[in-house]
Nucleic acid binder design. Structure first.
Lengths: 329, 329
DNA sequence: AATTATTTTGTAATCGATTACAAATCGGAA
DNA sequence: TTCCGATTTGTAATCGATTACAAAATAATT
C-alpha cells in the first residue's frame, strides 16, 4: 500500500507538500501541485483515512440506531439518513437493536472510542436513563420520539395533531366506538396521539373509554389477542386506530380469517403510510409520516451540531408535516 | 479525553504496560494488572480506536452494499449481516445504492482508504466490470447473485432448482399457461430460475413460449404494464411466477382493481417469502429464501477470508436451502 | 545590489495506540 | 554472596497522515 511518504519521494517534494495538495491548500505552486497530482495518479495513491482520522481526531462518521429493520417504517427513515450523510460527506452506520438491549452498547462504544462523532436514536431505541448519561458528553439527536427534559434535538411529527386527525376522520364517517391499538412502549408519541384522539372524541361529544386503548406489538398474534380482548369485554367497536401500518394489516388479516370478530366494515386508520398501506387488500387509510425526511433531517441536525462551534443552541423539537391519506379502509 | 499516557502516569507504569493490560497480555503481573484496571475504571478510560486501527492497519469494519432498503427482501439480508458482524466482533456499514450508481464509489473508497477491510455485494449492486477490478485487490463476497468467472465466494440459493419447484407447483395444480415476471436485471439468478422453469415445463410436456417471459421492476405500474402487455398479445395465462413478493402483490392489486385483466383464480407463486407474502390478501404462495442466513453467511465468509492466512481458497458457490411455502394463491 | 516582503517548501512534532527489544527485578542454585 | 534464568516492565520506533514553525526561494522595493 503506497503512503504519502512514497508519493513525496517520487514527486521530489516533502510529505507536507503532498498533504497540502491533497487538501487543496491554495498555497502550493500550481507547477508542483500538478507534479504531485501526476504522481498520485500514477501510483494510484489513496490517503489512509485511519491516519487522517487519528490526526484530526474526527472520523466523519455518525451512527443511527433503529429498533429494527424488518419494519418498512424504519427502512424509510434509514434511507433518508443515508442520503443526508452522503450529501454532507459523512459516513453513517445504521444499527439495529432487534430487541437485544446489549447490542446498543456496541453503538454507544463507537462514540466512546472515537469511531463515531454523533448518534441518532430512532423511536424508542434507547432508554431515558441512558440518554441522560449521554447527552452531556456526546452529540445526540432523537428521531420520532421525544423525551421531555432531555437536552437533545428531536425530529418528529406533531403526534397530537396526527392522533386528532386520525380520530376525526373516523368520527366524520360516523364511527363512535373507536379502539386505539397503541404502540407497545409507553412512549411520548403514543401519549400524544392518545391526547389528540381524546380531543377529537371530546369535540364530537363522544365519551372517552380507557378500555378501548391498548398497546400491542408489531406481531399478528399480539394484535389479534388485544383486539379480541377488547371485543371480549363486550365492547362494540366500529372503528380502529393502529399505531402502525403493520398492525393494521394484522387487523385486516384477522378479520378476513375470522380470528378477529369484527365486521369488515369497521373503519380503520393507521399511522405511517409505508408501502404496506398500499399492498393490503383493502388498502389502508393512514396518517402518512414524512419518514424519509425525518431520517434526513435528523442526520442533518446532528451534523450541524457537530460542525457548529457553540454547543448551546435551542435543541428543541423540530416538527415535520404529516398528512392523512384516505384509501379504502 | 483521557489517553493511554495519562492512564500510565496515574498508575505509575509505562504505556506499554497499560497496553498489555488492555490486550490481556498474560505476561503482566496480576498486581500491576489490577492496579491498571483500577485506574482505567476510575478515569473512565476508553482506548481510542482510531489510533489502534492505524497502528494495526485494520479497521475491523466490513461493508455490505444493497441495491435498496425499501424492499423487505434486502432488510432481512441486512439483518442477518448485522448479526454476523456482531457475533464476529466486527463493525458493519450497510449501504444502499438506490439506483444512484455513483454512490457505489463511496463504499468502494472505504476499501481503498483503509476504512473497511472487505465488502459484500448483494444482488446486482455492482457490475461485473467493476467487480473484476476489485476481486484481486480486496476481499469480496457476493450474496444472492453469482457472476461466472469472478473469483469471489458467492452465497445464494439454488435458483435453478427454485425456479423448477415454483413452476412445478403451478403445473401440479393444472396450470399450463404460466407467465414469468422476471427481475428487471439480466442477472444470473433470473437466468437460472428460467432454466428451472423450462425444465419443469419440459418434464410436463408443456411447450416453452418465450413471449410469456418478461422482466419487470418492483413498481406497480411496471408490473401492470408487463402483465397487460402479455395478455394483450392474446396470451391465455392461468399461472404467474414473479421474481419477488412485491411484484406478486402488485399482480394481486391489479387483479383486484381490474387494471390487470386476469381472473382471481390464476395461480401465483412468488419468490422471497418476506412478510409481504403474509399480509397480502390472499396470502402468497412463495419460494421462501433463507434471507437472514444469506446475509449472515455472506458476512461470515467475508470475515473468514479476512482472517484466513492463505488467500487462495475455493471461492465457490455456497448454496443455502430454500423451500416452497404454499399459502393462498 | 542590498534589503525587505512574499510566496513556497521543508522539518519535525503530533495524534494514541502497539510491539520489538532492552533493561530491570526477582528467585533460586552454587 | 554471586551468578543465571525467568519474569516483569520500560524505552522508543512505528503506523500515515496534519500542521506549526522555520527555512528557502522568489519577487518587490529602495
Amino acid at each position: 500500500m503506497s503512503s504519502i511518504k512514497e508519493v513525496a519521494k517520487q514527486a521530489h517534494v516533502s510529505v507536507a507538500t503532498v498533504s497540502r495538495v491533497l487538501n487543496n491548500d491554495p498555497v502550493v505552486k500550481p507547477a508542483t501541485k500538478n507534479k504531485v497530482l501526476q504522481v498520485i495518479k500514477e501510483m494510484n495513491y489513496k490517503p489512509n483515512l485511519l491516519a487522517k482520522n487519528l490526526r484530526k481526531q474526527a472520523s466523519r462518521t455518525v451512527v443511527m440506531v433503529l429498533p429494527s429493520m424488518s419494519n418498512p417504517y424504519f427502512s424509510e427513515i434509514a434511507r433518508g439518513a443515508q442520503a443526508a450523510a452522503y450529501d454532507k460527506g459523512y459516513n453513517i452506520i445504521i444499527g439495529t437493536i432487534e430487541s437485544k438491549r446489549w447490542i446498543l452498547d456496541t453503538y454507544i462504544n463507537m462514540l466512546k472510542t472515537n469511531l463515531a462523532e454523533g448518534i441518532v436514536f430512532v423511536s424508542s431505541s434507547v432508554s431515558k436513563e441512558l440518554l441522560e448519561t449521554l447527552v452531556d458528553e456526546y452529540s445526540v439527536v432523537l428521531c420520532t420520539e421525544y423525551y421531555p427534559g432531555i437536552n437533545a434535538a428531536c425530529v418528529a411529527i406533531d403526534n397530537k395533531k396526527a392522533g386528532y386527525e386520525a380520530a376525526r376522520e373516523l368520527i366524520r364517517r360516523g364511527h363512535t366506538h373507536i379502539a386505539y391499538i397503541a404502540g407497545s412502549s409507553a412512549s411520548s408519541s403514543v401519549a400524544a396521539r392518545i391526547e389528540g384522539y381524546k380531543e377529537a372524541l371530546n369535540e364530537a361529544g363522544i365519551p372517552f373509554r380507557p378500555e378501548l386503548i391498548a398497546g400491542a406489538k408489531n406481531k399478528f398474534e399480539h394484535v389479534k389477542e388485544i383486539v379480541n380482548g377488547i371485543l371480549g369485554q363486550g365492547m362494540q367497536i366500529d372503528g380502529i386506530l393502529t399505531h402502525s401500518d403493520l398492525q393494521a394489516s394484522y387487523v385486516l388479516k384477522g378479520i378476513k380469517e375470522k380470528s378477529i370478530g369484527l365486521s369488515d366494515e369497521v373503519g380503520l386508520v393507521s399511522f405511517d403510510g409505508t408501502f404496506v398501506a398500499e399492498i393490503t387488500n383493502p388498502t389502508l387509510t393512514s396518517i402518512v409520516q414524512p419518514l424519509y425526511d425525518l431520517g434526513y433531517t435528523s442526520v442533518c441536525k446532528l451534523i450541524e451540531k457537530l460542525q457548529g462551534e457553540s454547543g448551546d443552541e435551542e435543541e428543541g423539537l423540530i416538527l415535520l408535516p404529516h398528512h392523512l391519506e384516505v384509501r379504502e379502509t
